[in-house]
Design a protein around this nucleic acid. Sequence first.
DNA 1: ATGATATATCGGATTATCTCGATATGTCAA
DNA 2: TTGACATATCGAGATAATCCGATATATCAT
Lengths: 99, 99
Amino acid sequence: MEPIEIFKALSNETRLNILQWLKEPEKHFPKVSIEGGVCVGDIQEKAKTSQSTVSHYLTMMQKAGLLESFRHGQWTYYKIKEETVHQIASFLVSDTQNE
Amino acid sequence: MEPIEIFKALSNETRLNILQWLKEPEKHFPKVSIEGGVCVGDIQEKAKTSQSTVSHYLTMMQKAGLLESFRHGQWTYYKIKEETVHQIASFLVSDTQNE
DNA sequence: ATGATATATCGGATTATCTCGATATGTCAA
DNA sequence: TTGACATATCGAGATAATCCGATATATCAT
């Protein structure tokens, strides 16, 4: 877990919205895959921004460990990685660190 | 609480270090004020960066609500605002939001 | 194979962040 | 009231983030 990469990923309104939406995908998207993922197009539509930007954002959030993706046919689905979200929240409130 | 401002403030190694240090000031600094604050000069020394940069960073973190400051004589002391840190951690793990 | 659809990547113009040295302000001691 | 010290603010050059349209790639249906 790289806290700085995670915080950078969260420093943008659109990306922060995406994270929040994907916490409860059934509540925010018309269709959700069996595994709980949402396809890029549906995220793009809700985020109201360009296809390339959303794709870029999702990749960035995945690299930070906030999301994971899997492909079914021609669709790529993204879902939240709860583990990382909980880890970064714990990191924030913990008070043991080096030097 | 403005999550994006907070995450921006945490998106930098020096600033993130400062936050972590100020979680346990007695552990990381030679002297700590009665109120639990640390003066800018001591933070600068430990952060190993310029005076103007540290001052700027501390101001930014204060505006984000992560730190609070008070002055005694010619020294300005900064300490953590635990409340905000806990709030942003809760925000991350909560799953109730608008729209 | 071909065209349609979904997503990813590229290139780049614009805007923001980083970080510094210089300078201003504020406080204390002599 | 002057000089020394602590901190804040200013201005700017370097670097990075933002966000788009264009294009590439991958998959599916025909």
